[in-house]
Design a protein around this nucleic acid. Structure first.
Lengths: 261, 261
DNA sequence: CGCATCATTGAAGCCCTTCAAGACTTGTGG
DNA sequence: CCACAAGTCTTGAAGGGCTTCAATGATGCG
């Protein structure tokens, strides 16, 4: 309850709550009391760091609004973007349980955040094991996304890589109710996320425009034709589909809906 | 208790128990009763599949002895090896909570496995939230390793990639008490894990031998000089160091041992 | 209006891939 | 025990995808 004094706006926390429920948390007392612990965190404008990880912290950060990404500066001077965060996501759940290595979360659009003290999280997962399971699943979902990114970066050509990343963004955006076709990533950021040079990303974007997947708008990437993009990327969104992923639990409560291929 | 009939040898489960304790589980009743639920699973010889994921299963698999890896066949015909598993690791923890996409775990050495029914896992994490937290951390550790691999594959040259992978294996092997310098990976497997062609991996191995990092033994890779390998790879093992990762919890119980850089 | 960031273009070259073929190792069956 | 097959390791040569360097337009902000 320590967050109450400057508590975050309860309405703003709705996406956060919804995500946890999607992940299997029960919409009861345990979740409500966790939500009450969310304190108003700092706001960050595009380009500024939200969290600097690997520094001992006393709280975890929830992205209340906006888009952000996790990056790391490599020894060879490159920047590697490894995860993206959308409204309702935890930005630094991994450092709740383990302190990782030097990395940071930067805002891709203007962002507002909430803070949850580790102590409050401790209590919450101790009292409500379904909530704990939901948080665990949030970690798994993140891992699944990185897994996919690994396959994407390792053995595919630049065109497919960029297209795949854009598809992932589109999908995750619509999952949190953003239907705009504008993706808030510059070519520099695309390059850092796809492990390509900016020059080459530029040529790839031109190719995607040529194929009608991106619009001819300069400055920020606007998707013109989703299906064409999905086709170029060979994108299969299943790995992002939370509700389908919880099959085992859903089967218990709803035995008729098991899907067979 | 369902596993009791053909229960796995309790002694063989020690690495598994030790790993969970390292991850913060309490060595009490909760852990003991989980161990009793482990049934003897199938054994697999080098090259055969241990688990085929994305198929609905009723149990999770623990690697009791041996080395295995998670792979996926990509549409372009390549095989991507994404994770490695050693004695005491779960092979398919992710499919306990979420069903992912088509992938499989293959034995790199002869392996023996144990099975835990999902229902038993459900009970265990419901009753012992420290155990649940430990399992969560196991997922986080796996995610941290994939994160590192992502950075390794994305922006580094073949020499560093291969060296880094070998360093990771060495480190994880010694963590489970294997001190041999022989790494059970063929050049084909190295290639699939590093996202390189076999031909190129071969030349890289020669370069590593030339630099004195690998021995001139043909057939299977034998590390000659660990320090040189670490130097080539710019390897920093911190991300694998479980005990250091649990800093926050260790601080609570052991406040004197905080390390400062 | 100047400065910073982003987008674009061309040219040179390196890293790695693919193809192709040969040597060595291991296991299997006649 | 040897022949053969399958898998692994090795080597050379040709070529492609991507990077780096360098320079020029666009766009937006104080």
């Amino acid at each position: 309850m320590r967050g109450l004094k400057n508590a975050a706006d309860p309405g703003a926390l709705e996406p956060f709550a919804r995500k946890l429920i999607k992940l299997g948390a029960e919409p009861g007392k345990g979740l409500r009391s966790l939500l009450q612990c969310v304190a108003r965190g700092k706001c960050a404008s595009r380009g500024s760091d939200i969290v600097r990880l690997a520094r001992r912290s006393a709280h975890s950060t929830v992205l209340i609004d906006g888009v952000a990404c996790l990056y790391r500066l490599l020894d060879n001077g490159h920047r590697q973007i490894s995860s993206f965060y959308y409204t309702g996501d935890f930005c630094d759940l991994q450092s709740y349980a383990m302190s990782g290595r030097e990395q940071a979360v930067v805002a891709l659009t203007d962002c507002s955040t909430g803070r949850i003290l580790y102590g409050d999280l401790d209590l919450a997962i101790e009292r409500d094991h379904k909530l704990a399971l939901a948080l665990w699943r949030a970690t798994m979902l993140e891992a699944a996304i990185i897994h996919e990114r690994l396959a994407n970066l390792s053995r595919r050509h630049a065109l497919e890589r960029v297209a795949h990343l854009l598809c992932e963004q589109l999908h995750r955006r619509s999952a949190v109710g953003i239907d705009s076709n504008l993706i808030p990533l510059t070519q520099v950021e695309l390059a850092d996320a796809c492990a390509l040079s900016v020059v080459h990303v530029n040529r790839i974007c031109q190719e995607l425009r040529h194929r009608g997947a991106l619009s001819r708008n300069r400055h920020l990437n606007q998707v013109e034709n989703r299906d064409r993009l999905i086709e170029v990327a060979s994108f299969d969104a299943r790995y992002l589909d939370i509700s389908a992923e919880l099959s085992r639990w859903r089967v218990e409560t709803d035995p008729g809906r098991e899907h067979r291929p």
